[in-house]
Structure formats: C-alpha cells, structure tokens
Computed example of a mutant assay.
Amino acid sequence: MNIIDIVLLLVGFVLLVKGADIFVEGASDLATKLKVPAMIIGLTVVAFGTSAPEASVSITSALTNSNAIAISNILGSNVFNLLLVIGATALIYKINIQEVSIKQDFPILLVSGILLLLFIITGHVISRFEGILFLILIIAYVTYLIMKAKKESKNMPVGTTHLSNIRIILYIILGLAFIIFGGDLVVDASRNIALGLGMSETLVGLTIVSIGTSLPELITSVTAAYNKQTEIALGNAIGSCLFNILFIVGLTTSITPIITTNIMVIDTIIMLIVIVITYLLAYDRDFDKKDGIIMLTLFIIYMIYIIIRN
C-alpha cells in the first residue's frame, strides 16, 4: 500500500458522492416535471441514482474477477442503508410510514433477499439465468410503480423546478460519468490497500467500499429529513436495497457469473435478519428516535463483528 492508493481512494469517493449528488438533482427535477409523487421518486429516481456508485463498483469488480468485493459491497451497502441511513434519519425527524410500505415495499425487499440467498447456496454460483431473472423482476417492479404513479398523479399540479431541460440532461450525464470513473478508482485503490494491509477483499467490500458507495444514500436521506421530506428518505433507503439486489446483482451476474462462498451465505443471512428487524420496527407505522438509536447500535455491533471476523 502507498499514499497514491489512499489519494486515489479518496478522489474516487469524492467523485462518487458528487456524481450521485448531481445525478439525483437532475433526475429529481425530471421526475418533478413528470409529476411523480415523492415516495415514488424515493423508490425509483433517487434510490437508483444514489445506488449508481454500488452498481459501478460491483460491475467493475466482477469484470476484474473481484467477486468478493462485488457481492460484499451489495450486502454491506444494504445493511448500511437499513440500519445507518434510516437510523440517522429517524434521529433527525420522525419518519411516518405509509401502509403501502408495510404491505408492499418491505415484503418485496424481503422476498428479494430470500431469492438472493437461495441463488447463493444452490450451485455455489449466481448464474446468468438467475441474474436475468433479477433484471426481469426489477423491470416489472419499476413498471408497476410508474403505472401506479401515473394513476395517482392525474390530478396533481406540476411541481416547481429550478433546472432547464438542457441542464437536467447535462446533470444526469455528468453525474453518471463521475460515478463510473469514481467507481473504477475505488475498486482499484481498495484492492491495492487490501493486499498491502493483508486484509481480505470481503472485509474491504463490507466496510470501506460499502460505506463509501452508500454515502450518497446517507447524504440524500439526511438532507430529506432536514427538509421534512421523510417519504423520499425512506423510499431512498428501501429502493436502494431493492436496486442493489435486483438490478446490480442481476446485471453483474448477467455479464459474468459469480462464484459464491460460505462467507457470502453468512453475510446474506445477516442482511436478511436486518431486513426483518427493520420490517418489525416499521409495524408501529413510524421510525422515531428510539428506533433510530436501536438501528445505530445494531450497526455498530455489526461493524465490530465484521472487523473481528476478518
């Protein structure tokens, strides 16, 4: 490990965060002009935009045969999104939970996690067929959300935007460019750092990379909480987790099948436990400060376990 790798890692993270910020701003304005409700924006545009760093890192890792980072990044990011992002947001402002999230969004996330576990433990590889199945599921889910949004937004007034059509397009293109280039830097630098410190790629993927690529979700949700836009904050966290599993794993394994390990099985089970805990806490129809403290405490315990285990 040398100072250059550390600098490149930091530069990569900065590009990821800034790229996601620009992308989300442009995409959010686009969604507003299309009259898409706040929760739908959080579940789709914002969630997908803030998860673009995970997509870039995982796909790049798979293409360079760093399978451990590709999957560990997804699993670590989902734990980060559910425990730290929602937990920190709940500490700032109480998140009211709509009935649709209890009956639809959380169950779909849980089923997606169970499917991922089944794919990992059967055949010791996530195949192209399974990846394509994930892609079909995310396309079907997004299509359903768009159709639902169209019905709900017929009588909604067009929201105000501050970007012109040309600037919206430029923000989206520039944001994606930063995200892709930043993802390349993060993967290369983190692998070198892992080798230099004698760390496993799994540890790096679950900690440094997953936290770094999840910073856009944290920043976006916390900002939304400050502005009392809790529907966007919650939709961002849940949507990002769904995007991570269905789209990123789906696209990654469609490009190159990923050989799985026993550690991946354990980490997927941990992710499922976190999903269930979050789901149970959500049954009170809100995430308050008490729930936030519980989530942040669990996240600290999780990080200690990951570091000690590796």
Results as ranks from 00 to 15, higher is better:
Ser214Trp: 00
Ser214Ala: 14
Ser214Asp: 10
Pro216Asn: 05
Pro216Gly: 05
Glu217Ile: 00
Glu217Val: 01
Leu218Asp: 01
Ile219Asn: 07
Ile219Val: 15
Ile219Cys: 10
Thr220Tyr: 07
Thr220Cys: 14
Ser221Lys: 03
Val222Phe: 05
Thr223Trp: 11
Thr223Met: 14
Thr223Ile: 09
Thr223Phe: 07
Ala224Val: 01
Ala225Asp: 10
Ala225Phe: 15
Tyr226Asp: 11
Tyr226Pro: 08
Tyr226Thr: 07
Asn227Cys: 12
Asn227Lys: 09
Lys228Met: 14
Lys228Phe: 15
Lys228Ile: 06
Lys228Leu: 15
Lys228Tyr: 13
Gln229Leu: 11
Thr230Gln: 09
Glu231Ile: 14
Ile232Gly: 03
Ala233Pro: 07
Leu234Trp: 08
Leu234Tyr: 08
Gly235Val: 12
Gly235His: 06
Gly235Phe: 03
Gly235Cys: 13
Asn236Ser: 10
Ala237Leu: 05
Ala237Cys: 11
Ile238Ser: 00
Ile238Pro: 00
Ile238Asp: 01
Gly239Cys: 03
Gly239Ala: 06
Gly239Ser: 07
Ser240Asn: 03
Cys241Asn: 07
Cys241His: 00
Cys241Val: 01
Leu242Cys: 07
Leu242Phe: 04
Phe243Ser: 00
Phe243Gln: 01
Asn244Glu: 06
Asn244Thr: 10
Asn244Ser: 05
Ile245Arg: 12
Ile245Asn: 05
Leu246Tyr: 05
Leu246Arg: 02
Leu246Thr: 01
Phe247Arg: 02
Ile248Pro: 04
Ile248Arg: 06
Gly250Thr: 13
Gly250Lys: 04
Gly250Ser: 12
Leu251Glu: 12
Leu251Tyr: 03
Thr252Asn: 15
Thr252Gln: 05
Thr253Ser: 07
Thr253Met: 07
Ile255Ala: 15
Ile255Ser: 09
Ile255Met: 15
Thr256Ile: 10
Thr256Gln: 08
Thr256Leu: 15
Pro257Trp: 02
Pro257Cys: 08
Pro257Asp: 01
Ile258Asp: 01
Ile259Lys: 11
Ile259Asp: 13
Ile259Leu: 10
Ile259Phe: 09
Thr260Glu: 07
Thr261Asp: 15
Thr261Phe: 14
Thr261Met: 07
Thr261Tyr: 11
Thr261Arg: 07
Asn262Cys: 12
Asn262Phe: 13
Ile263Cys: 07
Met264Pro: 05
Val265Phe: 12
Val265Cys: 09
Ile266Gly: 14
Asp267Ile: 03
Ile269Tyr: 08
Ile270His: 08
Ile270Thr: 08
Ile270Val: 12
Ile270Lys: 06
Met271Gly: 02
Met271Val: 08
Leu272Ser: 06
Leu272Cys: 11
Leu272Phe: 03
Ile273Tyr: 09
Ile273Ala: 14
Ile273Lys: 09
